[in-house]
Design a protein around this nucleic acid. Sequence first.
RNA 1: GACCCUAUCAUCUAACGGUUAGGAUACAGCCCUCUCAAGGCUGGUAUACGGGUUCAAAUCCCGUUAGGGUCGCCA
Length: 549
Amino acid sequence: MTPEIIEKLFPNALPSIAEIEAKYPPRSLPEGARVMRVAPSPTGKMHVGTLYQALLAERVAHQSGGVFFLRLEDTDQKREVAGAADLIINSLARYGLRIDEGVGADGQDIGLYGPYIQSQRREIYQAYAKKLLMDGLAYPCFCTAEDVDMMRKIQEKQGLRPGYYGKYAHCRHLTDEQILENLAAGKPWVLRFKSPGKYDNRIVVKDLMKGNLSMPENDMDIVLIKGDGLPTYHLAHAVDDHLMGTTHVSRGDEWLSSVPLHIQLFTALGWKPPKFAHMAPLQKLDNGNRRKLSKRHDPEASITYFWEHGYPEIAMVEYLLNLINASFEDWRKTNPEKSAFDFPMNFNKVSNTAGALFDFMKLNSISKDVVAAMTAEEVYQAVLAWAKTYNPSFADRLLAHDAYVKAILNIERGIGKKSRKDLLKWEDVENDISYFFDELYQPTLADQLALLAGLDEALIRQVAADYRAVYRYDDSKEVWFDKIKQVGAQNGFASDMKAYKADPSAYRGSVADVAKILRVLITGRVQSPDLFAIQQVMGEDRVMHRLMI
RNA sequence: GACCCUAUCAUCUAACGGUUAGGAUACAGCCCUCUCAAGGCUGGUAUACGGGUUCAAAUCCCGUUAGGGUCGCCA
């Protein structure tokens, strides 16, 4: 390639390689420290899989005393969506993934190895592209997308491996004169890698999760610089992860087959490739078949799905940690008090399967435990924060009755295993506690009688009247329950469960049925938390009023 | 079509040549109990299939099948 051609391809002044390298000195970090990153594209929704992958990278980096950074891969300007970058930044912060470097909440760079937005690094990529060109490891290609497409179809028809390689790499064989002619004619071009590889050669690719893999050497002359002057993923990956000092690249499975190419690129640029860890994608069951969670088709693939429904962030983190490494579960059992972020993460025991199915049952179960471990105040604040965005009228109610709501949320809330475990996401709270509010408690007598089918109305009225006569707000729970038994006995209900079970025909029912009558009258439901606790929170007036039937 | 990955209960997984194949979630039953939730106890369900190697295979090898991924001026 003559200097004339190179000058025509890259006419603008570009920083020299030495200048660039000087700006990105090797990091001074302790032995064993790992530098890792999450590098999503701001193309719309934030995928749960991005959080999943970021969580592994963040934990490994920080636990090793290293650096975790965020890089925005926005080299495909067609796909860029406004606001997508903010969503990524907010999501990481929301789940407690601390960024040492990258793009901050205000859009400003944090850290010295930036810019961390690829579209702002254009000249850097071009400088290295120019270097490859000078080294004879790249060449301009004038084939249009249509040309390449047509060639691929022909290759497929002939049963050949499709792609731009070997004798099918048309522009690789252009003479300097032909290049000059095309340039003079103003033909658009892209820069391609002149792959030194042979497909028949096999190389060993090391992956932290999959082990050593034997793969064919890359021989594709892939595009390095696109028609718009921005790099493809491949070039950007090599340049950025070299300059930014990434030691370990964790990324999706879909990159595995590109590793031979990436190793070639690093080598061509004179760099040592980082270590790779490829993670299988999260999957879901669709008509009996597994498939990757898709942002387009699956609402739960988007992280905002979990915001809308009010899943606690910690629950999400614990669930994902569990998917990354199933020994998390055992660790959690022996370390119930520790933060999930204290779980020692390493690559050794990371799950290495074809991809885990996202399991809401398991998430729910974890979420129940997480909520049970929270105080009423913490639950209140979390529900309020959720409601402000997703249910404003409920938020107003929470604010207007904050002490009352906290008392409600405190019912059967103890420490650890003693705590009530039925709440798993914030969107459920409104319905769970609605009967505590007179304006939301609207069952008709007919509704209540239907819930009490099998007991006749006169009996129900009598039980209610008898209970009203003895009910005292200040009674202890024991005294209260004795009174329930007493009211039951007056009306033919067994006060002793064992006696009832021994001879059910001797009674109208048991003390459980008496409680059921009161529960339905007071809450409008057949199931509720502890009735005594409910009454204490509701207050005497409200309880008495509901018993007036 | 070529190349690569993966294959243990319904789900997430443990076992890295010798275990009654373990745990968690889910499910079922019992106990506890004012209902529910929880908790305790118990139970059923798995090494995809076929060949090897070995005294011994979920584990190693080969093949088959199935699922996933890649083969873009998308990342």
